[in-house]
Design a protein around this nucleic acid. Structure first.
Lengths: 359, 359
DNA sequence: TTTAGCACTCGAATATGCAGAGTGCTAAGA
DNA sequence: TCTTAGCACTCTGCATATTCGAGTGCTAAA
């Protein structure tokens, strides 16, 4: 990340005001407007001088000579960095969000869906939520269900709480009892094992068991190494009008692209909320867009991502707060319901966070 | 549906040419252009006269006096109705599509995803695919898996092939063996039963069994009556540039809206491909859009929908063919792998349709 | 270091003119 | 009765010119 130049307090303030005004109006903002609309105690000429400095340092730019200033990506980054972390959503919004989660079924898919919908509405942007995946997913439970003929429905439950299904065509027709026996044996052998563990035990199995296990391994492998196993998107409508978000929509639709971006941003391992402005020069697809993302889950071990995507010109404080809030909620749910090692299995109710600030 | 006026052969031909030219160029098309570009055997004046007739009947319109003609929605409808059903995708495109399906895993979700992706690319439009749902979904199999404390993961397999999962908080901690016993009992009681059947048997159960069954009933009910249980979308990028498709994207994102439209269009019970142009006056969200949809599955009993959504100005013959082809493929898969009553359980391979027209 | 004043620049909005594509209509021809 | 040629008319799109206003940079004084 480029080094940020020191600014005087007034310059910092002016930068913040330029950003605020530009976010609100969408028009470039001039010195006179700033003085009048925000009641500055200095004259427009002074503001002009400061704007000049900000311009030289690259925090603001003007589309053409003698036009108002608009914030640059660097300007946004400086602003976001200075953003105090204690901005919260209004109480009633938080209550509404919590309320919706309380009404949902106890199901990670439901929560993901809900988180995406909530974020999209609150941040008035596009949003996405990826399923929480353990760094190395583990086998939890297998079930084989006879359907008709040699077709068998295989259901695999992973340590992440995800349930994978897969149709399987056997070489011969087998009764359900035989299938159950196979499933039971594999369950006893493989419970809580990861990909590598299971691979080494492949030799101990008979032909049928091995056939099933190979499929299990396929699935484990495909959810391993954090590819995106499932994603919920929402709120695309919100960014349709904005210029330059077409690339972003492309990003949201293309799993592989998204996975790439997430892999790199998450590799930074930042615990809190991360703000990627204009692609930070690394992702062409995010040019002119901002992505605010945060992990949820049990950090470093078992986590997913919630994120908001919108135009560079967006209310950062609000949206950062929204992402943080929803990520925290999701973390609570995942911790209580899906973390194997959960320390307090006693209280069975949705997390409440009653001790949050009143506003 | 409004009655369609009779037209002379030449007028019909001219209407088709206007539509063809407009779809290609996007510009309004005049009499002279028609004669020159398509080598008509009559003069432009004659064409003008016919255009006048078409205009009076409402098949074409002009944006302003003395501008070229563009097709109206009514014009498109007439054209589509006349469209011969024997237009097929080029052989190599069909081969490519089949190839992709052959490489997919044997899983209805995979197929839905693939169908959406394929349609989006082939028709260069947005697309969606809904899961096949039986009119009355039936219970197939239940599994209860102890996680930690009083939390239990319940997995319910439905006759549609869908696998539903749901977390469940019990009143007390129970061992896995007890849970398995409950699941076994419910499985033996309820297999192949629908909502009503199960409801009447609620009295025969103990407290724990009843608690589980109530959740089962909830899920059955929520997938009953054809609400949309799951949808895959794709290709939104393709219609981003077009005017008037914003509403359509809204429609694609809002499950309830989509469900409403599908409920009404499917109620018509047409077996083949259905083309809804400009919302047919019934759906504001589809103004300026065209939706081409077809059922797949075992008709009237167990079916889902594949569809394409794009601007009114789209290549109808091609897109109708694409929707029909993908729907047929999906029908084949569903028939072989998910239909309980499948008559030929012997051959276990993807349907091939080798007998299709060579081009 | 801040401020007032002033000339300058550029974009957005508005008006004007012109070329081209297309129409409607009429009268003559098949 | 249907088709065609001819002609006057209409309207768009494009380019050019003009004005208006917001905003800047610079300089000199406080």
């Amino acid at each position: 990340m480029a080094e940020l130049q020191p600014l005087t307090d007034r310059q910092e303030n002016i930068l913040a005001l330029v950003i605020k005004a530009y976010i609100e109006t969408g028009h470039s903002v001039g010195s006179k407007t700033l003085v009048e609309d925000f009641g500055l105690e200095v004259s427009s000429a002074t503001v002009r001088n400061d704007l000049n400095v900000l311009g030289e340092l690259g925090y603001v730019a003007q589309l053409h000579t003698s036009a108002g200033r608009i914030p640059t990506e660097k300007g946004y980054r400086y602003f976001v960095q200075r953003l105090s972390g204690d901005f919260h959503l209004p109480l009633h919004e938080r209550q509404m969000i919590r309320h919706q989660f309380h009404q949902a079924r106890l199901d990670i898919e439901q929560w993901m869906k809900l988180a995406a919908a909530t974020l999209a509405r609150t941040a008035r942007s596009a949003s996405f939520v990826t399923a929480p995946v353990a760094r190395a997913n583990r086998y939890r439970h297998l079930q084989l269900i006879s359907t008709h003929g040699r077709l068998v429905l295989m259901i695999l439950v992973l340590s992440s709480g995800e349930v994978k299904q897969q149709m399987l065509a056997l070489a011969e027709t087998l009764p359900q009892s035989r299938l159950s026996t196979v499933a039971d044996r594999l369950n006893s052998l493989f419970v809580d094992r990861d990909y590598d563990d299971i691979l080494t035990r492949l030799g101990q199995l008979d032909t049928l068991e091995e056939e099933v296990t190979r499929l299990v391994l396929d699935i484990l492998k495909s959810t391993d190494n954090r590819p995106i196993s499932s994603v919920y998107r929402d709120g695309l409508v919100n960014i349709l009008d904005d210029e330059g978000t077409r690339h972003a929509i492309h990003l949201l639709e293309e799993r592989t692209l998204l996975a790439g971006v997430l892999a790199e941003t998450e590799a930074q391992g930042s615990d809190g909320v991360q703000v990627v402005i204009g692609g930070d020069g690394r992702w062409e697809e995010l040019r002119d867009c901002t992505m605010i993302l945060a992990r949820y889950g049990v950090t470093d071990d078992f986590y997913g991502t919630v994120a908001v995507v919108g135009p560079t010109r967006m209310p950062y404080d609000r949206n950062v707060a929204a992402v943080r809030y929803v990520a925290d909620l999701m973390s609570g749910f995942v911790y209580e319901y899906y973390s194997q090692e959960a320390a307090k299995p006693s209280v069975v109710s949705l997390p409440t966070y009653e001790d949050e600030p009143s506003d």
